[in-house]
Structure formats: C-alpha cells, structure tokens
Nucleic acid binder design. Structure first.
Length: 122
DNA sequence: CGGCTGACGACCT
DNA sequence: GAGGTCGCCAGCC
C-alpha cells in the first residue's frame, strides 16, 4: 500500500465515502450476519451474487471507516477461519476481543475455534 | 487507457 | 500445515 490503493485515512480522510454501490452492498450483507456467528469474505461475495470477488469484499471492509460500528466486520474471517493479523502479529483492530464478547473463542494462532460449526451461510 | 495494489480463494507441491 | 501460483476486479495514479 505504498500508493494508497488500500484505504488510507491520511490520504482519503475518515469521512470519505469510497466508491459506488459496491461498498454499501458489502456493508449491508455483513450487517445480516447474526451475533455469535462468523462468515467468510467468499461467502459475502457469493451472497452478493458476485462469486469469486472475495478480494473486493476485503477491499471494501478495509475501507470501512472506524465510526461504522453498525457493520460487524469482525465476524468476517478468511476461508481458513483465521482473523486479521498484521505481519508482526499485532491485530490492527481487536478482532479476537470483539469475537470473544460474543462467545467466540480464537486460538493463539488466530483461528476461530469451531469455525465449521459457527460458520453462517445465507 | 495501462499498470498496480490488495482485510481473498481454489489448487498444487 | 506451510509456501507458491493464478484468477478475481474496484479504485487510484
């Protein structure tokens, strides 16, 4: 992300509404995920009728402003059931903590315990 | 218009 | 499980 392809508040500002309807579609889909469940980027993409665009879903969530607390982004994990982590292992946001608040355990390695049974599909 | 980057995923070794 | 490859496509330069 050397040239601002990903969401960068320093460049775009926290209030900038990025893109067209795509982001809104993603956010709407994520809001449908019930508390205590998890889903994947790929599932969101499929739910939007855009199978295979999991990457764009991730892009949209990366652009999610911090004040959008109505979007439970932390319930979205990758297809392996792993949560967000930076290269150094420090979470960019406390995803495991937010999940724990809903009764979802995350292993030290960053994987949702019982992912297969907690996984929610539309 | 061309090139580049990804909070990804399926598949292969 | 751990790595590498390729495809996906929106947004920015």
């Amino acid at each position: 992300m050397t040239r601002g392809s990903a969401y960068d508040p320093a460049r775009h500002g926290p209030h900038r509404v990025v893109g067209t309807g795509f982001h809104a579609e993603v956010y709407a889909a994520v809001r449908e995920v019930p508390a205590g469940c998890v889903t994947t980027y790929g599932d969101i993409a499929t739910r939007l009728g855009r199978r295979g665009v999991a990457r764009q879903v991730g892009w949209a969530l990366a652009a999610l402003p911090a004040d959008r607390e109505d979007v439970p982004w932390f319930r979205v994990v990758n297809a392996s059931g792993s949560i967000l982590r930076q290269a150094d292992g420090t979470p960019r946001r406390d995803q495991s903590g937010l999940l724990a608040a809903e009764g979802i355990d995350v292993s030290p390695a960053g994987r949702v315990k019982g992912f297969d049974t907690l996984r929610w599909r539309a």
